[in-house]
C-alpha cells in the first residue's frame, strides 16, 4: 500500500481467471447431473420414495444399525485390549496380539462371514469347560447359536477388532512418555495410568479414524445379506426380486445409507470436539459458527469490492 498524503486509496484486487473458469465448468457439470437425475424416467423416483418408508426397508435399516452397533462394540473393546497386549513388554502377550491382527486383516471379511455362518460344519458342538479334560459346564449346538445374524455381527466384530487394534495402538503410542512418568511419580498404578492418563489422551487420536470405521462398518454390514441376514440391502433385494424394480430399490437402500452416514458424521464432529479438550487454546468452531463466519466473510468481500476503499496508514 502506498501512502497518499493520508487519504483513502483505491485497492484493486487480483483477478483469479482460473477460479472463474473452474467455477463455470462446475456449474455446468452440476446442472447436467441434476438434469439426468430428474429427467431420466427410469430412475422412477416415485418408486424410490414409495419404498423409502415401507416397513420392510425400515426393519432392514434397524437390522443394519443393530449389526453396526454390535460389531463395532466387539471391535472397539477387543481392539483396545489387543492394542494394550501388543504394547506389553511380555512377548507371550504381544506375539498373539500381532498374530490376531495378521490373520484377521489378511483374509477377506466376506470369507470370514461365510466361515462363521458355516462353523457348525467344523464344530457341531460347542462347549465351555475345563480345557483338554472334556469337562463342560455349558454345551450348545453351533448351528443353533450361529444364526445368520449372530454369525454376521460376530464375524464383522472380530474382523473389525484387527483394524481397531491398530488404531488404538497408534493412539496409545502418541501419548507423550512424560505423561506416564508424571502419573508414575504420583504413585499411580500401571492400570490407573492407562485408564486415567493415557487412554483419555489417546482418544483424541483414536476418535477420528474410529468414526471412519463406524461409517465403513455401516456399509460393510451389507455383506451380511450374502449369509441371508435381511438388513437394508437384503430387504431391498427381497423387494426387487418380486417386482423387478432393481435400480429404484438400490437407490432407496443407498439413500438410507447416506442418511445414516450423515447423522454419524455429525455425531463424530461433536465427539472429536469433546475429546480435544485441553489440546487447543480455543476449541474449533462448530459448523454452524463456521457457516456464519463464511457468510460474513463473503458479505464483507462484496462490500469491499463495491467500495474498494482501504484505510491508509499515515
Amino acid at each position: 500500500m502506498t501512502t497518499n498524503g493520508g487519504d483513502a486509496v483505491q485497492v484493486v484486487p487480483v483477478r483469479h481467471v482460473g477460479r472463474w473458469i473452474g467455477a463455470v465448468v462446475m456449474v455446468v457439470l452440476t446442472a447436467m447431473l441434476f438434469h439426468t437425475l430428474l429427467f431420466t424416467s427410469r430412475f422412477t423416483w416415485s418408486i424410490v420414495f414409495h419404498y423409502f418408508g415401507t416397513s420392510e426397508i425400515i426393519q432392514g435399516v434397524v437390522k443394519t444399525l443393530e449389526l453396526t452397533v454390535l460389531a463395532m462394540a466387539i471391535g472397539i473393546v477387543l481392539g483396545v485390549a489387543i492394542a494394550i497386549m501388543r504394547l506389553s513388554p511380555n512377548r507371550l502377550l504381544s506375539a498373539p496380539a500381532w498374530a490376531y491382527t495378521w490373520f484377521f486383516r489378511g483374509t477377506p471379511v466376506y470369507v470370514q462371514l461365510l466361515f462363521w455362518f458355516n462353523i457348525a460344519a467344523l464344530f457341531p458342538q460347542l462347549s465351555i469347560g475345563i480345557p483338554f479334560v472334556h469337562a463342560a459346564f455349558l454345551r450348545f449346538n453351533a448351528g443353533n447359536f450361529f444364526t445368520p445374524f449372530n454369525a454376521a455381527f460376530i464375524g464383522l466384530g472380530l474382523n473389525e477388532a484387527a483394524y481397531m487394534s491398530e488404531i488404538a495402538r497408534s493412539g496409545l503410542i502418541s501419548v507423550d512418555e512424560g505423561q506416564i512418568e508424571a502419573a508414575s511419580s504420583l504413585g499411580m498404578r500401571r492400570s490407573q495410568t492407562l485408564r486415567l492418563v493415557v487412554l483419555p489422551q489417546a482418544m483424541r487420536v483414536i476418535i477420528p479414524p474410529t468414526g471412519n470405521e463406524v461409517i465403513s462398518m455401516l456399509k460393510t454390514t451389507s455383506l451380511a445379506s450374502a449369509i441371508s441376514v435381511i438388513e437394508t440391502l437384503g430387504a431391498a433385494q427381497n423387494i426387487y426380486a418380486a417386482n423387478y424394480e432393481v435400480m429404484p430399490l438400490l437407490i432407496t437402500a443407498s439413500l438410507w445409507y447416506l442418511v445414516v452416514t450423515t447423522v454419524l458424521s455429525i455425531g463424530q464432529f461433536y465427539l472429536e470436539r469433546h475429546f480435544a479438550k485441553g489440546a487447543h487454546r480455543t476449541p474449533p468452531p462448530t459448523p454452524i459458527a463456521r457457516l456464519k463466519a463464511d457468510v460474513r466473510g463473503i458479505a464483507g468481500k462484496f462490500r469491499t469490492r463495491r467500495g474498494v476503499v482501504a484505510e491508509v496508514a499515515a
Binding site: 507423550d176 512424560g178 505423561q179 512418568e181 508424571a182 502419573a183 511419580s185 492418563v197 483419555p200 489422551q201 483424541r204 475429546f275 479438550k277 485441553g278 489440546a279
Partner: peptide, 10 residues
Amino acid sequence: FQRFNLFQHL
C-alpha cells in the same frame, strides 16, 4: 519435571 508433564486433558 523439566517439561512440566501436566496432564493435558485435565
